[in-house]
Simulated scan of single mutants.
Amino acid sequence: MIDSTYKWYPLYTRSRAEKKTLEELTRKNITAYLPLKKVMKQWSDRKKIVEEPLLKSYIFVFISAKEHAEVLMTYGVSRFIYFSGEIATIAEKQIEDLKLLLANANDLEVIEHDIALGEKVLIKAGPFKGIMAELVSLKNKRSIVLRLQNLGYSIHINTSMAFIQPLK
């Protein structure tokens, strides 16, 4: 019997091995997602835009429970992320939201700590329409914080306050 209960799982990779890990998982026909951001790097002789992982040492895999061992035996994979004693899963909507954010990433900043709970809002217009977030008064009260559950990361985006509505 084939296990058809596929879910998104966050993985922790070896330091600076995210892209190589993605290659290895893809080579094994495992669906994986590595969120990348474009960053301007400067060397002594030139400047260049390069792609770096949005969340350092994190990669996401879409697998069934039967594939856990195969994933753990992949080059670069350190471990699954646990939350409350169980392997964490990520909702499909959160992966899609992350892809949407990166497609419109004009002003994206990752904070590697949890931010105190704020007012929950829904973005009702603009490039981030449909995304639920937590509002935090930062950067002239124009910053939306999106919390990625089970990861301990938050993402800041800047958008107009006119584009959000409080959730009740």
Rank of each mutant, 00 (worst) to 15 (best):
I90L: 10
N29H: 09
D114H: 09
H113N: 09
L148D: 04
E51F: 07
L98T: 03
E18S: 09
L34Q: 03
W43S: 03
E86L: 14
A162Q: 14
I95W: 05
V71Q: 06
P10A: 05
Y58S: 03
H156K: 15
W43Y: 10
K93H: 07
S57V: 01
N106D: 14
R27G: 05
W43I: 07
K37W: 00
P127C: 12
E119N: 12
T89E: 12
I155Y: 01
A32T: 05
A103W: 02
R14E: 14
N158Q: 12
I30N: 08
S154Q: 10
E109R: 15
S154G: 15
S15A: 13
M73R: 15
L167G: 02
G152Y: 02
R14V: 07
E119L: 15
W8F: 05
N106W: 07
L11R: 08
I30A: 08
Y58T: 02
L54D: 06
G118E: 11
I123V: 14
G152M: 03
E112W: 00
I164A: 07
P35T: 01
L36W: 06
I87M: 08
I123Q: 08
A65W: 02
D3S: 03
R14Q: 13
D107R: 13
V39F: 04
H68W: 08
S15V: 15
T89C: 08
S64E: 09
Y58R: 11
M1Y: 09
K66T: 14
R16T: 14
A162P: 01
N150F: 10
K141D: 12
V61M: 05
I164N: 03
K37F: 05
F62V: 08
L72P: 01
S64C: 13
S4Q: 11
P10I: 10
A133L: 04
G130F: 09
D45K: 10
M73F: 14
E51P: 02
A65R: 13
E92K: 10
G152R: 00
